[in-house]
Amino acid sequence: MDLQRKYTCIISICLLWLIFVCVFLGENAVIITKSLMYQVSSEDIRGHADEDSGILKDEMFKSTVIQKPIPVNDNCPKMGDISDWTLQCKYNCRAINMTFDSPSRVQLVPVCDQDKGYLVRESTQVTDSTPVLQFQHPCIRTFLRLNCSSNFPVPNIVHYVWYNMRPMRFYHFLSVYSVFKIQKPCVIFIHGDFMPTGEYWNFLLKIVPNILFLQQIPPVEIANKTILHIEHKADITRLNVLKEYGGIYMDTDEILLRKLDPLRKHQFTLSKAFDFNLSNGLILSARDAGFLNIWIKAYDTYDPNKWGYHSTIMPAKLSKIYPDMIHVENKTFVRPDAGHTKDLFQNNFDWSNNYAIHLFMRYYKKVYSLTSIRTLNCTLGTVARFILFGHKELCTK
């Protein structure tokens, strides 16, 4: 017991000395994440962000792992051209190595400090070193204010909800990579009970530096009523997340196709899915937006037996009552709709007028990969190749 008390005393003295150094010397900051402690010198501090530039420099959005393809035909459309849907061209698409060795990767680590936020360059490939913070942690709001401020009502931050899922699948990866590549957000939040796992998650961490995992337990009730379905828990969580932080919410099978900046000028935006409802798979919201609060309040009448009523029918009804508080897109987030999934997995749908596309993967269980989509001759194939390679045309085998 004497020896144990001795070691405890030594550890306590070391911790007090560490706190003294951080507080009184002020030249260095200490960051504590899930399993590692990093010493960050003043050289790692990045300055205050300009409008919508975020804390990441442009070169960090460029990947050397996913390389530009080479056209095989002379009549190929220019890279990024989505006006020609004849799909007569082919590209030599270079293989993507998900297991490449990298001596270091850039990772976004927030410092719980009232004055600054940091971007830390760390030498590690340990995936569990990804920072794990709790929802509504006091550090997050300060971090966003100092690094992700914007003149738009909707900040350029993206949210995902990750409940009851562990291994990340290809389409999850494609969704997150699409917002990273196209929207170039200041930060991407994954809100969930457990961190994703698997090869796609590990690959994502290597090429996308600005992911933060915020841990929260799925809600169990609302308005004194038990929430029966995990989908309903995710519906409520996305609204609470947007109320707290604002930003862009994305479903994990929603793929971004062009920048949402023209819509960020509105306080709140949803898109029609059908003529009688609004989709909640992609939401843009200012922090604590008025329409958002009205929608949350409407959950006082929540009925767990009504599958999509409060998540899609209710906002459509509220949009008719409060039209000045919401901007409604005409199916530009959800086209094709859930009634036309053949256009996603069997046909080639012209999505050139879409902001995003919903894949409805719950209706189609086939497993796709970075390899199989190269020659996949349907809408999913064109979307995946556009996000990964910058073109929608078929790849040579």
Rank of each mutant, 00 (worst) to 15 (best):
Y7K: 14
I11L: 14
C14Q: 13
I19V: 13
V23K: 15
V30T: 14
T33P: 02
S35V: 12
L36F: 04
Q39C: 01
S41H: 10
T64F: 08
I66T: 04
V72Y: 10
T86D: 14
I96H: 05
D101I: 08
V111K: 12
Q114N: 14
D115N: 11
S123I: 14
Q125M: 12
T127R: 13
D128M: 07
V132S: 05
Q134R: 09
R141I: 12
R141N: 06
S149W: 07
P153C: 04
M168L: 08
V176D: 00
I182C: 07
I188Q: 08
F189G: 00
D193H: 06
N202R: 10
L204M: 11
I207Q: 06
F213W: 10
I217S: 07
E221L: 05
I227Y: 05
I236F: 14
T237C: 01
N240C: 06
L242Q: 02
Y245R: 03
Y245P: 06
M250I: 04
M250K: 03
T252H: 04
T252K: 04
E254H: 05
R258T: 11
K259Y: 00
L263R: 01
K265D: 03
T269V: 15
N277S: 10
L282M: 15
L284V: 15
I313L: 06
L318T: 10
D324R: 12
T332F: 01
K342W: 03
L344Y: 05
L344C: 07
D350S: 10
W351A: 04
W351K: 03
R362Q: 09
Y364M: 09
S369M: 06
T379K: 08
L380D: 06
F386A: 09
F386P: 02
I387G: 06
K392T: 04
E393A: 08
K397I: 01
